Amino acid sequence: MPAALLALAVGAFGIGLTEFVIAGLLTEISTDLAVSIPAAGLLVTAYAISVAVGAPLLTAAGTRVPRKTMLAALMALFIAGNLTSALAPSYGVLMAGRVVAALTHGAFFGIGSVVAASLVAPNRKASAVAMMFTGLTAANVLGVPLGTALGQQLGWRATFWAVTAIGVVALIGIVVLVPARPAEPSGGLRAELRVFRRPQVWLALAITALGFGAVFGTVTYIDPIMTRVAGFGPGAVPWLLVLLGAGLFAGNLIGGRAADRRPMPALHASLAGITLVLTVFTVTAHARIPAALTLLAFGVTGFMLVPAVQTRVMDQAADAPALASAANIAAFNLGNAVAAWLGGAAIDAGLGYTAPTWIGALLAATALLLAAVTGALDRRARASRP
């Protein structure tokens, strides 16, 4: 794989870390800045909203900018946001830093996916996208536990200083390793927007939102599922998250290779796997060893979906992929937010802590149905060609 993919993966690692590590630092932030835990929790909500807003806006703003230049600019903005967070004297300034950093998230992954795919032969583009996303999975496996520990020992600001340093390394890597190419002759923003007239693009975005809603809607409630249902002690949760992260890491790489060989079967297989595993999880969650093994399988099937859906969107918007790719990242976050809300509402309604698993199974099954529809449309289009 080209060395430029390493720079993109480092950037993905930093972005993934700044998104997820905040959950482990809410108590420290709440105490230091004299705000409530729910107020500190809004730092997570604001980040997700900013991702959904920033992904299409910043990508659209850079349609005529060379992609290397745009990636470097996004990483510089990411550094500025996290530096602001590290220096924040108040809750409001910290919130501003989080919003600025989040604005770069979707555009970086969207444009970065297109750049990653362009660095390799067409039959390896899904693996290239998966390689970039290994930074995101590594952030979950290693970055979040280490970042949380750093913030607990040296103060939450130390974590943001570390993320800022990672951003600097990624920026240097992008400048040095990513090849400089002129802006793509895509016709600018109008051409990028035209791809949204295609039903297949919207179907792919819906599959992403539903499929990843199934995944992260369940991940949001892994702690109570594994402690209050499976019977693990609180001290086991970090190790269970490492187990989940190992599954995510493996699934991402497996999914990339599978999508390179047979894209649509890989998409169907990942969604079917998520549906099956979450259905099983509703039963195995009641015993520790079966729950842990199912958690690992859930991680594998969950992130097998990433390269399949990301390359699917880029394929359906091949003549203007950057904005569609960024919109797909927004769909990830929209699905995550809605599914997490559904899971919480079900728990509040007294349906139990395993409710997110069967809700996730229903979401994944719906995504699988849409994948069957999009596959049928593909076959009809091929049959109608002369």
Rank of each mutant, 00 (worst) to 15 (best):
F216W: 11
F216V: 01
F216N: 04
G217A: 08
G217P: 06
G217D: 02
T218F: 05
T218V: 15
V219W: 00
V219Y: 01
V219K: 00
T220F: 08
T220A: 13
Y221F: 14
Y221H: 04
Y221W: 07
Y221Q: 03
I222F: 13
I222Q: 11
D223H: 14
D223L: 10
P224T: 12
P224G: 11
I225A: 11
T227S: 13
T227Q: 13
T227Y: 12
V229L: 09
V229H: 04
V229T: 14
V229N: 04
A230C: 11
A230E: 02
A230W: 02
G231T: 09
G231A: 07
F232A: 09
F232N: 08
F232W: 13
F232T: 09
G233M: 12
G233V: 12
G233N: 12
G233L: 12
G233Y: 14
G233D: 14
P234K: 14
P234G: 15
P234A: 15
P234S: 14
G235K: 12
G235I: 04
A236P: 09
A236Q: 11
P238W: 01
P238S: 09
W239I: 03
W239K: 07
W239L: 14
L240Q: 02
L240D: 00
L241I: 13
L241H: 09
L241V: 12
V242W: 01
V242N: 05
V242K: 05
L243Q: 05
L244W: 03
L244M: 12
L244D: 01
G247W: 03
G247I: 03
G247T: 05
L248C: 10
L248V: 08
F249R: 05
F249Y: 14
A250M: 13
A250K: 10
A250F: 11
G251D: 02
G251M: 02
